[in-house]
Design a protein around this nucleic acid. Structure first.
Lengths: 338, 338
DNA sequence: TCCTATCATGTAAACGTTTCCATGGACCCA
DNA sequence: TGGGTCCATGGAAACGTTTACATGATAGGA
């Protein structure tokens, strides 16, 4: 591989000068600059980022560890993160934890060893030792979407409570009383928040969340299917199933369809996370939409601040209800309609 | 940051011995090994992969440049690639080209400068100079899904011709004669292959593909919508629209729904690329499914071979037709049914 | 008992950069 | 004309590893 040394040789200059040209250092003559650029061109020189990183202790890279790439929510998040990072001059390395603590560990460790400049994590739960270590260590860390209570890491997330209250109001207004929920892992902050808000919403209408109407899921499609099947097997099945992420909603749809039941006539369905496909399902699904891309952008900027040495602030953005047809005819004066 | 030197000091050994322990070199005494491990533990030592890579000229990383992370097809591909790479001891850095040659260039250049051990590319077209340079250069490269004719880079892809012929047969058997297609960029190999196979399929039934029934898309949803709108504006709209990827099918669905038309009664719809959502759309969509995950795994193994110095072989895997309801009632003896 | 092979360990070079410091020349001002 | 400043350039150290080579010790075979 051709290095800076070869360039220096053909340009008839020292490596120091070549380096200066390559880094836009002001103190270099036009003649030298020209000769260096000509040499790099002629030799097809390509800088060795590895060597540069070793010397400068900066990799120009940030890590992003998410729970599940296959989940369209995280895909969109990842895309926004990469885009914003690129405009700020950073590359992004994505680690897919697949909702597994061991994989989360694996990726966080790998990224730290790679000496990324900063780390964006959506922690599965508080039980990944490496994540905790990273949160406490010297590398800048920002949590996105989910967070770990008790750490003093900045968090960029959306608050679904208001939207969930709106959802319960909506369901109540449509006459539904038997409300069931498929939760995520209760170890995740988002998992807990969503079921808590749901329960609070019911309480506001004088209803309580029946124990058998709580299905424990793991944010993956298969768990949504199983939970829904259990609901439908109950002597008194619920009127509505609220899946707390889009994949579990997909599983629920599967389970309902497999029994030949219709949404919303036989059972209504609502989901957390809005994705394009939800306007094309049969029927279109009422959802709670997060400002996903904005979340990603804000998180990157917070991380960049942290890397630059300034303190980063946590951000909470609101989610909102998107009423479609999967819970019955929309109430006349409701939230956003599609 | 604590380095191998600090570990050596606290262990009372030389850096060479520490390095040997860390790399599992056989020639090291049990006592030394123990002391080193104790020291790493005590100091919280974390190896510096950057320095290691500089010395060994191996990064343990492969690059993956795809056209669009938001496309579920590529998401699934990326996930499979990461999984297989991980079992082989590699990390993956994903670059999202967003169907833009300049972004493809940007990512390929960045990955080469990062000195990745090998590169997996799904090239948008043959017009990215960096991709061509990479293909000709010393870094091992494998093309996946799409490829660039004229290069001698191994290719791992699926062949959709047979399945497209099956699709045309299926449509013909259902009585459809006005067949329209939304193509991808004709600069991509997959884009060309799909329209060619479609035209050939029609020819086999004595039909020709009318010029106004060819919509030029770009593999993104919006282009599918626009192409479909143009089809529907024709004095004689087509009976069937075949979208050559899943996002354009989503756009088509949008356009059809926006006019209050029904699938398949008013216009039938079929798509290339099968994704879970297609069984939940209204109606479920007839598609051509690729062995996406397998494609990713095979590509990684081919690349690993190349990196190891062995010649890699190209692979072509077959796609197959999945009949659902979006083209009308399935013919009694058809392809795979769902 | 001596020679040799084997083994555990250490020393130091090398990987490709960036950057501190030194050097010499040109220029400016008095 | 002399002294000082600034600028372009080069030499060399440093970043944290791995590894070739050297060394001393230990053991095994004759």
């Amino acid at each position: 591989m051709v290095g800076i040394k070869d360039v220096a040789e053909t340009a008839g200059l020292s490596v120091a000068t070549v380096s200066r040209v390559l880094n836009g250092h002001p103190s270099v003559s036009d003649g030298a600059r020209e000769r260096v650029l000509a040499a790099t061109e002629a030799l097809g020189y390509r800088p060795n980022v590895v060597a540069r990183s070793l010397r400068t202790d900066r990799t120009g890279t940030i890590g992003l560890v998410i729970s599940d790439v296959l989940n369209p929510y995280f895909t969109e998040l990842a895309r926004a993160v990469e885009e914003e990072a690129r405009t700020l001059g950073y590359s992004v390395i994505i680690g897919n934890a697949d909702e597994r603590a061991d994989l989360e560990d694996h990726h966080v460790r790998g990224l730290l060893e790679r000496r990324i400049d900063g780390l964006l994590i959506s922690p599965a739960d508080g039980r990944s030792p490496m994540t905790l270590e990273a949160a406490a260590g010297p590398t800048p860390v920002v949590f996105v979407d989910r967070w770990i209570p008790g750490t003093d890491v900045p968090v960029v997330r959306s608050d679904g409570r208001g939207a969930i209250a709106d959802l319960v109001d909506h369901l109540h207004a449509l006459g539904h009383r038997g409300l069931a929920i498929i939760t995520g892992p209760t170890a995740t902050t988002t998992g807990r928040e969503r079921v808590d808000a749901f329960r609070a919403g019911l309480a506001a209408h004088g209803l309580t969340l029946r124990e058998e109407y709580v299905g424990r899921g793991d944010f993956q499609a298969e768990s949504g299917r199983r939970a829904t099947e259990r609901f439908l097997d109950l002597p008194e099945p619920p009127d509505v199933v609220f899946a707390t992420d889009n994949l579990m909603a997909l599983g629920a749809l599967d389970a309902i369809g497999a029994r030949g039941l219709r949404v919303p006539d036989d059972v209504a369905l609502a989901a957390f996370d809005d994705i394009p496909w939800f306007s094309h399902t049969d029927p279109p699904i009422t959802t709670i939409a997060q400002p996903t891309a904005e979340l990603g952008r804000v998180a990157v900027r917070a991380l960049a601040d942290l890397i630059a040495g300034s303190p980063a602030t946590s951000t909470v953005l609101p989610a909102h209800l998107v009423v479609r047809r999967s819970c019955g005819e929309p109430d006349p004066e409701g939230a956003t309609r599609e």
